[in-house]
Amino acid sequence: MNDGAFVALLAASVVAGVPIALAALGELLAERSGVLNLGVEGMMLIGAVVAFQVGNSSGSLWLSLVVGALAGGALALVHAVLTVTLRASQIVSGLSLTIFGTGLATFVGKSIEGLPLATDFRAVAWGPLADLPVVGPVLFEQDPIVYATVVLAVAITWYLRRTRAGLSLRSVGESPATADSMGIAVARLRYLHVVIGGVLAGAAGAYLVLGQVPSWSQDGTTSGLGWIALALVVFASWEPMRVLLGAFLFGFSRQLNFYLQAKGVDVPAELLSMLPYLLTIAVLVVWGSRDLRRRVGAPAALGLPYVRDER
């Protein structure tokens, strides 16, 4: 257990889990407001390509991260306008977002395909704590975004459970008619959380190029992580801490491949690349059954546009 490769594997798993966690936490907020956004993959790609371009030309890590996140938020805003204001189908709008995001990222990314990025997030060591065996490298020698993600998951839990605003948000996702009659601004809350969801997805994409693989490649950058994030929200029963845990597990399973290869065990890469789609199918099965959905704890009004009924 104490071999260096295994500790490296654990440390890498944490890093690999961060973008999944960020994107899934964002999607969780949107879904808690009752809006399903299948555009996570598209928003992540846009965030990644924009962050890469900004990073390339400015050299500033934080600026790249912020602009990438905002790009994701902008795409989510389109989704909010279509589904909240115009009451379009959330499924159709979300899928279009992914198609659009993928297309645009390919187009913008053509010139930078395969280029490396000069700058990336570096780990910060927590003084003597980082020297502890195993836990040191895994927990106390990571980059700032890793810690920010953990803090975010805790904060969202607290927001949902303990605050007045969180209660309002949950009511909008459970029963918008009730929320409306209690004076809660349903549309405003939905817009807000869909856009925050997009910002987090954009940040997740940005982190992929800024923190993990400092290069851009159309196929390799997200490779279905957005779909995994979507599935994770369902498997985590819309609970932030479970999302975080699940994200690290997924990160581990992705890194395990490399570890096993290094150990001489050969796992077909195809198996791994199938994973997002298998999970998506599993989620759609759950989604298709009202009863299952209720049982796994889906917000009762998830996926439904809200029309105020005067009667």
């Binding site: 009511s171 459970e174 009730t178 209690m182 004076g183």
Partner: peptide
């Protein structure tokens, strides 16, 4: 007009502007 999944207390204070930000 009640949220089924909420507790009675949660339903009672839902949207109440007099509640502190931290319930």
């Amino acid at each position: 007009r009640l949220v089924e999944r909420f507790t009675v207390a949660e339903n009672v204070v839902l949207g109440d502007p007099a509640q502190p930000a931290l319930l």
